[in-house]
Design a protein around this nucleic acid. Structure first.
Lengths: 236, 236
DNA sequence: GCATCCCACAGAGCAATGCTCTCGTTGGTT
DNA sequence: AACCAACGAGAGCATTGCTCTGTGGGATGC
């Protein structure tokens, strides 16, 4: 537990009182940072401001997060998880056989979350931060939304509601295809990734104002976009 | 010429020698800033560093750009224009009747430009910069790529190669619809905006690494995504 | 031709940032 | 009881965006 986190003490086992208060303070810092992020965006997130609000010296924060970027990473992971969970929960609330409804639910939940947390969303799907290279820790949670919509298709194929689309393309990694039982449906797999990216493209456009003065009813437009992708995936 | 540019002297008419050298220096500053932006990204763009490279005091730069954000705005407008021009030129090189080919050309050009100028692209379609609100000056150039792909559909409708899609939705601003002769084809209009956002979603996903370890052949995948949108638009 | 005026530039300065280093204190372990 | 690692505070460094003040020079008016 010191590879990328430097020689910062472990957090995992809060057995001692010290470890407990440490975990407490760590999450407290992250919480304050999250509110700062939510109000001012990533650029307005200042370690010193967080420290000030917590009435501690700025240098003390470095005992908990080796750098501002590490704080950001924590926030990013949390955000990915929150977004993923929102999509998962929404999708889980729809009848398993209603494939299109499940897609709509997941996508709408992602959009709702993005509208509710614009700055955090921008952190996830906007430009990568400064000299920031997405650390390993983010790749897992980052895929949760994608996993949800892939799961819909997989269920459809497993139940026979969907049959593989004709043709075959070699664009998606074979291990990924195998992981999601899409080896025999590569065309649909490519379109799935396309739908995934299109989903966040649409959300990003709305969020960043690119559709301002163009789209008047974003809810309906978003539904239409998702429907288009559902058509491309041949969801019933 | 002093509304948003403060009381900075006009640049428009370089009649006097002074105005000429002024225009010269202004573009020189922008050029240096552009290279800094291209190498380090928007966050690494420092007015002082630009001034240093130009061997002038940092305060002198403020004679030309009232603030760092104004410098950034100039760069953004230029980038929008460069991207738009790339798409326009590529699209113009395809036979007018080949609607799908025109779409592919425009989209591929946009992708190529984005890959060649990742930081500038991130500035346009990534998260909005810090406390930065897109000024009026950017909205025109920002639409150029969209205008290109809308033009393809309009040409198709005008020539009779395309017929309006059945149905009617009220999601797109009526003035925009009228401007592009799409009043009677609202379903296609909505999908057009969807394709537009999907295009940049796909490019952004590739650029920001979201498809890393998932998509193996980005050229082919991107073509597939564009083809999906072309299908949705019923391009022959 | 001279006086005037305004633009351009430099330099100092302010508030703020991320991060480092040092130094005293304190909690937990042996 | 003694020790050590963790902890927190404060000062300090380099950097940033931006403002203010002073000064020189080229363009302009008479």
């Amino acid at each position: 537990m010191l590879s990328k986190w430097g020689r910062i003490p472990t957090v995992s086992a809060p057995r001692t009182a010290r470890a407990r208060v440490r975990a407490q303070l760590t999450s407290e810092i992250a919480d304050v940072a999250r509110t700062h992020l939510a109000t001012g965006g990533a650029a307005a997130l200042s370690l010193r401001a967080v420290a000030r609000e917590l009435r501690m010296a700025s240098s003390a924060v470095y005992r908990y997060f080796p750098s501002r970027d590490d704080l950001l990473t924590t926030l990013i992971v949390d955000a990915y998880d929150a977004l993923g969970e929102a999509a998962e929960q929404a999708e889980a609330g729809v009848a398993r056989t209603d494939l299109r409804g499940r897609l709509h639910a997941a996508c709408a939940a992602a959009r709702d979350w993005a509208l509710a947390h614009p700055h955090e969303y921008a952190l996830l799907y906007g430009s990568p931060v400064p000299g920031y290279a997405a650390p390993e820790a983010t790749i897992g949670p980052a895929g949760r939304v994608g996993t949800v919509i892939v799961g819909i298709v997989r269920d459809g194929l497993a139940s026979g509601a969907l049959t593989p689309l004709p043709g075959s393309v070699d664009t998606i990694d074979s291990r990924v295809l195998a992981e999601f039982d899409l080896t025999d449906d590569t065309v649909r797999a490519a379109r799935l990734v396309g739908a995934w990216s299109g989903l966040f493209g649409a959300i990003g456009f709305e969020l960043h104002g690119h559709t301002h003065n163009i789209v008047t009813d974003h809810v309906a437009w978003f539904r239409a976009v998702v429907d288009t992708h559902a058509d491309a995936l041949a969801l019933p």
